[in-house]
């Protein structure tokens, strides 16, 4: 790490603290949501500088993209400004100050940044780095650990995404009881989108195919470069959100109907689970892809490809469904 990189990291981290303070300080929740998007983009840059390219890609797509959209969708349905402010401010500040002091005191025992002899570098990490070329033979070790060595965890993660999708559909899928409230902003966006604004429309329509192409690249090139099913799914969802903003909520709903999205959400975990069962039927352990082909390393490649596709399909389906649930709530 060069001196320049270190200073850039320090600059970004300081900016993140300032942004976080501004987020807590502002009464305008719209501003807070936008600032949290900026905050995520800065943390994505930090992650990239700290050699975590996969995490940087995910944080940029999720934090700066989808979660900002979700916050805005929720704000359109609730309130744009904070009313009450804070309660028990003195007590909270006292607790926070004491814990900060204790945590900072504890950091003096931490290994310095980049220490090759830090405990985290000595335990199992070298084993994964050494054995990945032999067992899995994909260049991206993060993908290898995520999809194969720790495939159980990623299966669980897929189910978490699926469950969250079910939860949001349960909570927001049905029209509200009593008179449905009409939010003018959302109705406007829901019917026409930005169709009256030529420049965003032309630029946006040009961008969408390239965003989708990039998503496919991230999906299928995840073994060789940063990326994978989750990142690809988020990028596809972002392109659909962009389409909905440009052409209106209804148009996006017609392009990808709700039943298809629900089917996609359910298909992913099924693909993932059945891959595991197929491994068992072929005589291996659950999610041990080595038995999927004559050559164990090829089997691993097929397994990772299939389960990454499953993850991508689920994430796309769930995130677009969640977006539609929030957007349609106000438009009714």
């Amino acid at each position: 790490m060069t001196v320049f990189t270190v200073f850039f990291i320090i600059f970004l981290l300081t900016l993140m603290v300032i942004t976080a303070l501004a987020i807590v300080q502002t009464k305008n929740l719209f501003a807070a949501a936008m600032l949290s998007g900026i905050f995520s983009l800065m943390s994505a840059m930090i992650f990239f500088l700290l050699d975590a390219a996969d995490v940087a890609l995910t944080e940029a797509a999720v934090g700066a993209g989808i979660s900002t959209v979700l916050f805005l969708g929720a704000l359109a349905l609730t309130a744009e400004n904070e009313r009450a402010g804070t309660a028990g401010r003195a007590a909270a500040l006292a607790v926070v100050t004491v814990i900060t002091a204790v945590l900072v005191y504890a950091t003096f025992d931490m290994p310095r940044l980049g220490d090759p002899n830090a405990p985290a570098q000595l335990h199992v990490a070298p084993w994964y780095l050494e054995k990945t070329p032999e067992y899995i033979d994909v260049p991206n070790v993060v993908t290898a650990v995520l999809a194969s060595f720790r495939g159980y965890d990623t299966l669980g993660e897929t189910f978490v995404v699926f469950t969250a999708g079910i939860g949001v559909l349960f909570l927001l899928g049905k029209a509200p009881v009593g008179q449905p409230k009409v939010s003018p902003a959302m109705t406007f966006a829901g019917k026409t989108g930005l169709r009256h604004y030529q420049i965003p429309r032309v630029v946006g329509r040009l961008l969408i195919p390239f965003i989708l192409l990039f998503a496919l690249y991230v999906q299928f090139h995840g073994d060789y470069s940063p990326g994978g099913g989750f990142q690809a799914g988020v990028i596809v969802a972002a392109s659909v959100v962009l389409y909905a903003l440009l052409e209106g909520e209804e148009q996006a709903r017609q392009a990808l109907p709700a039943w298809l999205l629900r089917l996609m959400a359910a298909t992913g975990p099924l693909i993932y689970g059945f891959t595991g069962v197929a491994c068992m039927l072929l005589g291996g352990n659950f999610l041990d892809y080595s038995v999927l082909a004559h050559d164990p390393v090829h089997g691993q490649h097929y397994g990772i490809l299939v389960i990454e596709a499953g993850v991508g399909v689920t994430v796309t389906g769930v995130l677009i469904s969640i977006f539609h649930s929030f957007a349609a709530r106000g438009a009714k």
Partner: peptide, 16 residues
């Protein structure tokens, strides 16, 4: 690579 793997999962769970 291991912190990256852990945090990838955490980001996904976080958005959910």
């Amino acid at each position: 690579p291991l912190p990256s793997v852990l945090i990838l999962t955490a980001i996904v769970v976080g958005i959910s």
